[in-house]
């Protein structure tokens, strides 16, 4: 069973916060001794999801958790907002679909960059995306 060894939260309310999110996630990935390529993938996924939270979710929070599952370690990031929510999840997960001016790769791309990906969203209530990368 997975044990949570460390838990920290960060606000996502401004563009500067998104930069801070990248730095904190990079730090956490370094501590867990992920390889350089893995670190880059994790921080990039975090950047995409944090921006989504800010731009589409109207701001929210990120949680960083360090997990231990027997002998392997993992990094879990949770992005939470109380924004308008996503109407059609399947559509949102398609490459290229965007309701803004982005490339539409944030959700589908982050899924490819991480080991595990889950998303919950309710119209009018908000969105919560959880991604994990195992070593």
């Amino acid at each position: 069973m997975t044990a949570v060894l460390k838990d920290e939260a960060a606000p996502i309310r401004s563009e500067e916060d998104v930069v801070r999110v990248r730095q904190r996630v990079r730090q956490a990935a370094l501590e867990l001794k992920f390889s350089l390529v893995e670190q880059t993938k994790i921080v990039t996924a975090a950047s995409e999801l944090a921006r989504n939270t800010l731009v589409h979710g109207g701001g929210g929070t990120m949680r960083i958790e360090r997990l231990s599952d027997g002998s392997r370690q993992g990094l879990r990031l949770t992005f939470d907002d109380q924004g308008p929510g996503i109407a059609d999840l399947a559509l949102a997960m398609q490459d290229g679909y965007t309701t803004g001016h982005g490339l539409g790769l944030g959700l589908s791309g982050s899924k490819r960059l991480m080991s595990d990906f889950t998303i919950e969203s309710r119209l009018g209530q908000g969105t919560c995306v959880t991604v994990t990368r195992w070593r």
Binding site: V37, L105, R112, L113
Partner: peptide
């Protein structure tokens, strides 16, 4: 950087 290129490919860009 190589790590960036690899990530961009995975990201789909």
């Amino acid at each position: 950087r190589p790590a960036v290129a690899i990530t961009l490919v995975e990201l789909g860009m």
